[in-house]
Structure formats: C-alpha cells, structure tokens
Design a binder for these strands. Structure first.
Lengths: 361, 361
DNA sequence: CGAAGTCATGACATCGGTGTCATAGCAGTT
DNA sequence: AACTGCTATGACACCGATGTCATGACTTCG
C-alpha cells in the first residue's frame, strides 16, 4: 500500500506538503497541489488512519455493544429485533459527523462485555454506546475508564446517560386516542409484569383513564403473557374469555405487543366475532410486518427506536466534544400512535347506537 | 491514556519487556512479569491498536457495508430486516477469530458506497463484506483495490465470491415435503417475478413437482404480489379466488413469504374456510414473529441468513489468510423446512377420504 | 575449564502520518 | 533601503507499539 512518502517522491515534494494537500490546513501552490493529486490518484493512495491517529489521538471510531448486557430476567428470546433500528439511528448520525461505528455483540452473554470493551478501548473509541434488546435496568461492569458512555433502551442506577422509550407516555397517548374516539371500556392485556415496560405502560394506561374521568376497572387489565417458555397462548385465551364474560365487556382491547394482537385476531374470530365491528384491537410496537399486514391493519404505538438511536448518538457526540449538555440519567423518547382500521370510532352516531344497544340488553 | 513507556517506567523495565509480557512472544522472568502486570493494572493500561498496527500492518478490522448496494429494482421497502441476521452471523465468526467489525450503512443510496469503502480502507480493513437487503444481482463500484471482498445475499457478474440463499432448493424441499405428506394439488402464490428469488423458487417448485411425477399446472402458480406501491392485497385476493374457482382446487397454498401467508389466513377465513382442515398454507422466510405466532403456526422455509453470514465470514477469513479456498462466484446455502400445523397431512386414511370425496364430486 | 547454548533484558530503528519551527521568496509600507 | 507581513515549502521530531540485534548471566556438556 502506497504511503505518503511514495506520493511525495512521485510528486517531487516533501511528505508534509502532501499532508497539507490532504488536510487543506495550510496554503499549497496551485501547481504543487495538482502534482500531488495526480500522484495520489496514480498510486491509489489512501492515508492510514492508524498513523494519523498516533499524533492526533482521535480515532474517529465509536464503539457499539449490542445484545444482552446483564441478564436480570430469564432469556426472553426476542423474535423482533428492535436493536437494529436503534443501531441504524446511531449509525446515521455518526456517519453524518464523520465517525465510524465499530460493533460487537455479546451473543447473549453479558460476561463478554468487559472483553468487548477492552477491544474497543484498544481501538481508542471516542465513545461507547450500549444497546439493550429490550427496555431494562442494567448494572454494567464497563471498565470504560474515562471514555464517554451512553446507554440505549436501558438504564443503570449510577445515572449514566441513558436513552429509553417513554413507554408510559406511549400507552397514555394510545389510550387517550381511544377515549377520544369514543371508547370507554378499554381492556389492556399486558406483557410480563416483571418487565420495566409493562409497569410503565400500566401507569400510562391508568393515567389516561383518570385524565378522561373513566374509573379504573381491575378486571380489564390482565396479564396475558409470561416470558417463561410455557403455553402463553392459553394465558391470552383465558384473558380474552375473562373480559368477554364481563357484564360490561370492553369495546376495545389493547395488547402488550403486536404479536399478541396478531394472536388475538385469531382468537376473536374463532369465537365468531368481527374486528373492528364487534371488537377493536390495538397493539404496541408498530411491528410493521404484522401491523401493516394484518387485516384490518393494526392500530398501534411506535416505539421510537430510530429516534432513540439518533438521540443517543447526539448525546455521545456532545460528550466527545465536551459540551455542557451533560445528560445525567435517563431521557425518555416518545413515539407516535399509528391509527389504523383495527379500531372503530364509537363517536356521535355510532356511540348513540351503542348506548341504545346496551339499554336493550 | 497510559502508554507502554509509562508502564515500563513504573515497572522499572524497558518498553520492550512490557511488550513481551503483552504478547508472550519471548520468555520473561517471573518477578519481572509480575511487576509489569501490576504496573499495567495500576495505570489502567490498554495497548493502542493504532501503534501496533503501524508495525504489523494488521488492523484486525473487517469492513461491513449494509443496505442498498445498487438499485436495479425500485425501492422495495423491506419490512423485515434479514440483513441483521446475516450481520450477526458474520459478527459471531469474526469475533471468534479476534477480528472486529466496523460497519456502515448506505442509508438507501448506493452512491455512498465508494465513500464508505474509502473510509474503511483508511482504517486498513483486512476484508470487505457487502450485505444486500434481499437476494439480488449487483454491480459494485467497490474501489477496494486488492482488499478481499465477499458479497452476501447478492452476487455480481464478475465472479466475486458471493454467498446467496439457495432459494430453488428451499422451495424444492418445501414442496417435496408437501407431496410426501399427501398433497398433489399445490398452489404457489409468488412474489414479484422481477426478483431473483422468485425465479429460483419457481424453478424449485416445478422441479419438485416433476420429481414427484405430478404434472405442472400453470393455473396453480400465480403472481400475487408486486413490489410497486399498489393495493397488492387485491392481487392476493384475486389469486386466491382464482385457485378456489378451479375444478380441482389446491389442497395447499404456498406463499412467497410469511407476510403473504398472514394475509392469506385472513382471506381464507373470511370465506368461511378453515386452516388447515379446508386448506393448508405454507409460507417462506420463517419470519418467526409471524410463523410462530399465527394460529395455527405456519409451515415455512427458513432462509439461512445466520448461516450465510457465518459462511461469508469464513470465506473472508480464508481470503485474508491467503488460503487456496478461493471461491469464485456464488455459493448457495440451503435452509431447513419448519414443519408446523398449518399444513395437514393427507396421507393414508385422510388421503383415501379425499379421493372418495373427489370421486363423488 | 572453556565453548556453546539458553534465558532475560535493553538499545535502537521503524511504521506513516502530523505538529513545530525554520526558511526563502516576494509584495507592500514607511 | 530596510523592515514587515504573507505565502509556499521543507527539515525534523514525535506519537506508541514492535522487530532486530546485542549483551550479560547462567547452565550444560565435551
């Protein structure tokens, strides 16, 4: 591989002049510049970042660790891979500011983290970003020293800068929209309550009801999915039966994620009921392969993975540049509700009819 | 950041001795080693890969480009992101052999590729891997010089080493399994025929029929999805109606991907038919969020993304080490059929019954 | 006992860039 | 004419590792 000396010789100038042409940090004569550029092109010269870094101490690299960070929960095998969107968000922002991403995956073992970090530090990454596969609390044995660290989709107890989804707000917005379109009996079939997201979303669900003046009914909020490897299909089935058997059954059923909603479609229909005429359904995640493909398309909340990644990258860049924007602790990013036809409006006329119906029953 | 000189001074030895402790390439006295290790720990010393690379010319980095490589087709927005699994496969193998992955994404514009490659070359990557988002032919303006290149999920006309899914074989295996379980009228609703995968799978479909001695019936193979942004739902609907109206309707319907199968579930049921009692359904991709969540779970073929990534990494490593295993052109990787209950067996008793039925009709 | 071999260690150059400083040429100023 | 200021360029050291070679101490063997 050609070096700067080869170029210098070919152009009959000093290496330093070639350097100047490369970096444009000092004036170079028109003729000289041309000669150097020709020589570079002819030799296929590509400067070595390693050598450059020796002096500047700026690697231009950002380390990214994905996968299991520390397993508090049993391995909930994620079928969808939200991490990817986060990584894309990070990648985009980093590329735009000239940084290159170097990545490693724990492969499911958080024990690998320290070794991965060590490798990154050898490459002198300017910042480290950890991306968790689902919203969780972690305790990281980073060993990152004074290298800036940003957590994404997770947080720790030490106030490390963290970007997490605003699960509470997302669920709040969804339920509020449901209320606005006329629903009052809103069931919520939750994910495993051991998950951070489940607790937050439950808060959002209740807050939305309260804000709308609708009394909370415990019979409408049911855990319908556990992270253990059992027939969770049965849990969902029982939950559905349970709300169907209520005196005042719900008009809409919210699910903990889009996969639950997909299953629910089948269950509801196998009972001879129609969506959305008899029941409206809402999901969570905006897992597009499901939400857009289902018929009718699924109303759901988008978890702002891309935005989270972008925000994390911005924070990291800020820390690198020593900006004052020192985020301590978690920053929550909200996501939009995607309103699709799996939810019917019970407003005005429709609502009146529904009221009459219930009078007669 | 501490340097090898700092450690040497702290341990009262020469830098070279510290180097020897680090690399274990020459004997070091027990006491000396201990002193050096203590000093390294105290100073939090991490060797600089950049400096190391200056001498060894081995960066330990592998460049990975994902996303759009060159757009022959119109932007078919991918809802699922198979690239990720490929990347995971690559990452795993690379990590196991001590390489670190540096990644960049085209962000949908193949025009960015040369610039990304240039950045990678600056980092002196030992190999370049291109990962396409779906099986396609590409023409790459790599500018990679003499850096080894491996293509994944795509191939070019120049015989660049490429790892692609064995679409033909996958479809062949699936259809053969269907035949074995007693099906003879096998419909196949295809993806856009402009895609490489569609053509290959069609070949596999026909080959399987021929191998089983079942005559090919053009009325059973229907394009049911286009990559353009139109109401492809209607295409699928028409395709279904079309095969249902046949004198001898199919007993099983294969879909071009799992999302089509998901939609098909809805369409079939909205016609009052049951799965799998009235119709068996098979998908393609083993998109687990769909295939495992659907009721009944979907029989489908797994596209071997993880395996492809691993294989690509192995090839790349081989090229780095100058092994003779010079793969020229494409290597096809097959994937397993996942047999689930969306397909019913028409064997023995069942088959007899079906025959009787057809006799009476 | 001396030669040969092993072990443990250090001095020094080197990889490919860039920061610092020096220098030469030439215009404009007083 | 002497001085100042700017442009264009080169010499040289340096960043942090490691390869090469040399050296001194000690062991082993004929």
């Amino acid at each position: 591989m050609a070096t700067i000396y080869d170029v210098a010789k070919a152009a009959s100038v000093s290496p330093k002049t070639v350097s100047r042409v490369l970096n444009g940090d000092a004036p170079v004569g028109r003729e000289t510049r041309k000669a150097v550029e020709t020589a570079m092109a002819e030799l296929g010269y590509v400067p070595s970042n390693a050598a450059r870094m020796m002096r500047s101490n700026r690697s231009g690299l950002i380390g990214l660790v994905t996968g299991a960070l520390s397993h508090k929960l049993e391995p909930m095998e994620p079928t969808g891979l939200p991490d990817l969107y986060i990584v894309q968000g990070i990648q985009k922002v980093m590329a735009d500011s000239g940084k290159t991403l170097i990545i490693a995956d724990t492969g499911g073992t958080s024990a690998k983290v320290p070794q991965l970090v060590r490798t990154f530090l050898q490459h002198r990454v300017e910042a480290l970003v950890y991306v968790a596969d689902y919203h969780q609390q972690v305790t990281l044995d980073t060993g990152a020293g004074n290298c800036p660290v940003v957590l994404v989709n997770c947080f720790d107890a030490d106030g490390t800068p963290a970007i997490v989804p605003d699960d509470e707000r997302c669920q709040f917005d969804l339920v509020t929209d449901l209320v606005r379109s006329g629903h009052e009996r809103i069931a919520y079939l939750t994910l495993d309550p051991a998950m951070v997201a489940t607790k937050l979303r439950s808060k959002g669900y209740r807050a939305a009801l309260e804000a709308a003046g609708i009394p909370y009914d415990g019979a409408l909020e049911i855990m319908a999915r556990r992270n253990v490897e059992d027939d969770d299909g049965r849990l969902l089935q029982r939950a559905l039966d349970s709300v169907l058997a209520l005196d005042k059954p719900p008009t809409v059923i919210c699910c903990g994620n889009d996969e639950m909603a997909l299953r629910l479609y089948g269950l509801i229909r196998s009972r001879g009921l129609r969506i959305p005429e008899d029941f409206s359904v809402a999901g969570f995640d905006n897992y597009r392969a499901i939400a857009e493909t289902l018929y009718p398309p699924l109303t759901t909340v988008e978890l702002p993975y891309l935005a989270m990644g972008q925000r994390a990258a911005e924070i990291a860049l800020g820390m690198i540049n020593g900006e004052s924007e020192q985020l301590a602790g978690s920053e929550m990013v909200p996501g939009p509700v995607h309103w699709r036809s799996s939810v019917t409006a019970l407003n005005s006329v429709t609502k009146l009819r529904s009221n009459i119906g219930s009078t007669f029953s």
